[in-house]
Every structure is written in C-alpha cells, then in structure tokens.
C-alpha cells in the first residue's frame, strides 16, 4: 500500500509540476515582445499541458484500483499548485525574472526534468503504453531544452559555454536546496505540530472570551454598519 501511495504521489506531483510549467509558458507567450517568441512559448505550453494529461491518466489508472478513502487524497486540483510551490503567489517567472534568466531557467530545467523522468520510467517499466508515453515526454523535454539553448546562443551570443554550464549547476543546486527545504519544512511541521496545536488551543481560548453574539445583524440596517470595521 505504501508503495502504491508513493506511486500515486509521484504521478500527482509530476502532473502538478508539468501543469505549472504549462501555465508559466502560457504567461511567457502572452508577455512576449515578438510573435516568433510567442509561437515558441505557445507550442511549449501546449506540450506541457499534454504531459499533464498523460501523467493524470497514469495516475487515474492506478488510483481507481485503490480504496476511495485513499484515492480521494490524490485528486488533482490546480489551486494546490500555489501551496505546493509550483506557482508563486508573487507572479509567473516571466513577470519576476529577467528574460535572460528565464530562458536559462527553461534551458536547465528541461534537462533536469528529463533526468527526473528517467526515475519515473523505472516506476512504470511494466506498462508498455505508459513507458512509451513517458519516453515521448522525455523527447519533448530534450527538444524544449534544445530550443532554449538555440535561443540563448542566438540572442546572447556573447555567453560562453561555461556560462550555460554555470546556469545548469546553479539550477541543480537550487533544486537540491528546494528539496532539502521542502523536506525540512515537512519535518519541522511534524515536529512543531504539537506546539502549533497547543498555541491553537490557547489562541482559541482567548477568542472564546470575545463575545460574537453582538455580530447578529437581525433587525439592523446593514447599510448602517461601520464600513471601516473589520468585525
């Protein structure tokens, strides 16, 4: 059961990551300065949407074999992309990064994604159809990486090959730190949970002292309520 849950989790998280990428590329398409760039981002976004569909379909096939109580936890919900960190509350990457850094980000992350899919390939090795679908996705990722590289070299010709390597090393390190940070956050969450619960318990005791019965507005003209009051 634990293995199955891990499998579902990998598929859900990968689908979420791909969906996040699709939205990032769509945002890049909409803010492009040239129609040729917009075309590239559009096609990239379309591919990422299709990858999401593939992973959700693999997830769905596995989750329907599970008891409903467990399967319910693996429903895909696009709003959770914010809390899972696949999208930032501050905006899309294209809105917060310089264009050069954004392209570098795509260049390195597509390669890293391809590498991570090799791990997923091992998980689905017994299923011919899923294996093929993931191999196709890996090819797409390599193609996206190639486009980003081409773009990079065309528009930033002064960049040396070592600089591309530097970008990759930087992103790899960032990804590792992200994973460590995520792990620590979860660990801290577990360790500190009793404290949070205790704080919540005392917090709510204080709140219980606040009399909310006067919040009842029956018989009152709602337009006369104070408009600067948050209560």
């Amino acid at each position: 059961m634990k293995n199955n849950s891990n499998y579902l989790n990998v598929m859900l998280e990968t689908a979420s990551a791909e969906f996040g990428s699709a939205l990032e590329m769509l945002a890049a398409c909409k803010t492009s300065v040239k129609d040729t760039f917009a075309f590239g981002y559009f096609e990239h976004s379309k591919d990422e949407y299709n990858h999401t569909k593939t992973f959700l379909s693999i997830l769905s096939k596995a989750a329907r074999m599970m008891p409903a109580d467990i399967a319910r936890k693996y429903r895909f919900n696009s709003i959770s992309l914010f809390s899972k960190g696949y999208l930032s509350k501050n905006g899309y990457l294209i809105e917060t990064m310089k264009l050069k850094d954004f392209i570098a980000y795509v260049y390195t992350n597509e390669l890293l994604a391809k590498e991570s899919f090799e791990g997923i390939l091992k998980l689905v090795k017994n299923n011919y159809e899923d294996t093929n679908a993931i191999k196709n996705i890996m090819n797409d990722e390599l193609r996206h990486h190639g486009f980003a590289k081409e773009h990079f070299l065309k528009y930033y010709p002064k960049l040396q090959p070592w600089q591309l390597k530097y970008y990759k090393a930087k992103e790899t390190a960032k990804n590792r730190f992200r994973r460590i940070y995520d792990f620590n956050l979860k660990l801290l969450g577990k360790l500190l949970n009793p404290l949070y619960i205790l704080l919540g318990y005392f917090g709510v005791q204080i709140i219980s002292l606040i009399n909310t019965s006067n919040l009842s507005r029956t018989g009152r003209n709602l337009m006369d309520l104070k408009s600067n009051s948050i209560l």
Binding site: V204, I207, I230, L231
Partner: peptide, 15 residues
C-alpha cells in the same frame, strides 16, 4: 466581507 468575523466564527464553532 468583514475579515475578523470571517476568521473568528469558524474558530468559535471549532472550539
């Protein structure tokens, strides 16, 4: 909406 009421009422119920 009134933010503090929206925060307090579910908490008071959960209490």
């Amino acid at each position: 909406e009134k933010p503090l009421s929206a925060f307090l009422i579910p908490l008071k119920t959960a209490l």
